[in-house]
Design a protein around this nucleic acid. Sequence first.
RNA 1: GCCCCGGUGGUGUAGUCCGGUUAGCAUAGGGGCCUGUCGAGCCCCAGACCCGGGUUCAAAUCCCGGCCGGGGCGCCA
Length: 436
Amino acid sequence: MGSRRKEDLDMDSKNTTRVGGWVSEVRELGKDLRFIVLRSWRGKIQLTLKRGKVRDELFDLTENLPQESVIEALGEEVKEKIAKAADIEIIPEEIIIHSKSEKKLPLDPNWKVKALLPTRLDNRPLDLRRPEVQAIFKIEASLIRGFTDWLDEHGFLRVFTPALIGSYSESGAEVFEVKYFDNTAFLRQDPQLHRQLAIIGGLEKIYDLGTNWRAEPSHTTRHITEFRSLAVEMAFIKDERDVMKVEEEVVAAGISRVIEERQKELKILNVELEEPTRPFPELRFPEIYEILEGFGKKIPYGSSYDTESERLLWKYVKEEYDNDFFFVNRFPMAEKPFYVMRAEGPWARSVDLICKGLELSSGGQREHRYDILLEQIREKGVDEKQLEWYAKFFKYGAPPHGGFALGIERLTMQILNLENIREASLFPRDPERVLP
RNA sequence: GCCCCGGUGGUGUAGUCCGGUUAGCAUAGGGGCCUGUCGAGCCCCAGACCCGGGUUCAAAUCCCGGCCGGGGCGCCA
């Protein structure tokens, strides 16, 4: 007889358990013994169908059951299970087939044959069925929970700043345009300017967890066009070092939460994660130039460094401080945007956080003095009128403040040693991919 | 934006340099055998050279163009 209605399965008797999942494999040993292995959030579940022990109709029902079909079963859990590879073994009393899969699969969720990343992303829902892929997102969720709990406990207010902006947001060239009724709007590339306006609004300690977009046609393993950031902004700081202090605490809180909650997932991914030692080392310009010269790398004085330098600096920090994290402070003002606060000489109170040679965040102290801000806007050659909507509010009282924006996917990628940032995004967007 | 590399069954690969078997293998798929754990096994079957042009007796292989994809740099998170 065919499948039972769901209501029938709800009449659970005492010793029965109910499981559901995707058919990972069906193994048949002769006509009288069949194993159906399910992949589920509870782990691997083996249904054991033994002629004589289960009703014959369950054999008929599951005849030619294709891999990746979705079924539910009700049955008795075997206490001393024989199935070594399964987490749970069930002798089924009832089985319902919710959905039969096509037989030819675009990739194998059992991973007997590995698919390449583009194939995986083209077929992401099937790829996501793999426990090692799910582990990434479980870890990411814990990481974020660690961040937000720390921030909430330390008096930061979670806010949402706009993603649609009617004018220049930061650097202009790399924003996506959006048709906005009869006008044009832009997707934010960073919630920075609105965070500052919120500070001026008297929201002294805030954070925004949200999506940013960059219209950069970058072909690398560390860029996607849509990414999420944890963006923190705080008022009445002494200088940028107050911001760094918060940032390292937040990062450490996220990582220790992952260690607390996700041992199983870390093991699946074969990652040994340790809470980073604090404080994170701080490297500064212009000393950076000397460090790099020690590696035979010459950077013109007054210029910022390149990608290779980030890796060299990591090597240096690893040797000198045995840390995967470090800050770089005092970037050349000439290469930074108008809103950063100038430090002594040509340097800025501008700070990056780098993990294993990859930039995770930018931040620092912002310029809150209206006249200087205006000067810097002119200096950078930015059209004043384009920024008036933002700059004018600095006339009415702005406290010293600073913050940072930390890339969620980038941090996830770095702590899990993922080779491509796309792995840390559920449905990544890049210059070639906006579907699925 | 600049530069480099690559497209072989559903998936993942060998073969390409140096042109010439029936395009090999794995896995998934179809059929058969098997009453307990294993990535279960064994036997059989079916399935592919991105597109177009050129060179040649002969092109998966060499050349040109196109399409699609990957990566590096720049920039950034």
